[in-house]
Design a protein around this nucleic acid. Structure first.
Lengths: 116, 116
DNA sequence: CCATTATTTCCACATTCATCGAAATGATGG
DNA sequence: CCATCATTTCGATGAATGTGGAAATAATGG
């Protein structure tokens, strides 16, 4: 992951509602959630939520898929792994917070999961 | 780390110059760098850099210390660890990207033993 | 087809963010 | 003390962000 992508992902998560949405989608798992259910769960007006979903989507952190009448949103684990990897590398590069502190393997992605 | 702090840290890093500054400070290690040297290394005007340093500082990601005439800035590794921990926990909580996937130690956070 | 449902786009507005020259502040050495 | 150096604050400006109601778009079931 290059810096520009990391900045995009960081910015997408750096907002109360968007962080809540992403957390919710992570918990929802691979089945994802329809926009309406997200709005309902978090108490965000539809139009506002749509704006935030677009931001998360543009950052590559979530993906959408239409299922019948609903648009289902799903967290992209690979993107989150890439972000964590970037931060870990750039937090630790040449510095004291040892990569080994994680567990020893630092060029393997943190969460290895299906890719999108 | 609670959500508000995470949002602050994410927002602080979600900017080209600030991310570059933080990376530089991480590389610089515990000795840190004076503001002038940072501005010089990254080609950022003093006043702009000062603004960004304040943002990073307010987010708790860096700390300052006066040494003679210079203000030395240092990356706060603990804060970064806390952020990584928050993201890891909230990426994985109740979902499929298993905590064990990290390395096997599942009750030990990524880089440090700590909870908010 | 059409009524209905689900979601997005449009719009207007207030707020915050980023930029950087110039002036102010703070600290030091001599 | 004061000349000087290092850095911050001030101020003005343009751009981007967040908000939410209302209207538009898309898809389905019947």
């Amino acid at each position: 992951m290059e810096a520009a992508a990391a900045i995009g992902a960081l910015g997408a998560l750096a907002q109360e509602h968007r962080l809540a949405v992403f957390r919710l989608l992570v918990q929802a798992g691979e089945d994802g959630m329809p926009a309406g259910a997200i709005a309902d769960a978090l108490g965000i007006p539809n139009s506002s939520l749509s704006f935030h979903l677009a931001q998360l989507s543009r950052a590559g952190l979530i993906s959408q898929e239409r299922r019948s009448r609903s648009l289902i949103y799903t967290a992209d684990y690979a993107a989150m792994n890439a972000l964590l990897g970037y931060l870990t590398e750039n937090c630790c590069a040449g510095a004291t917070c040892a990569p080994d502190a994680i567990c020893g393997s630092q060029d393997k992605p943190v969460l290895e999961r299906k890719s999108a």
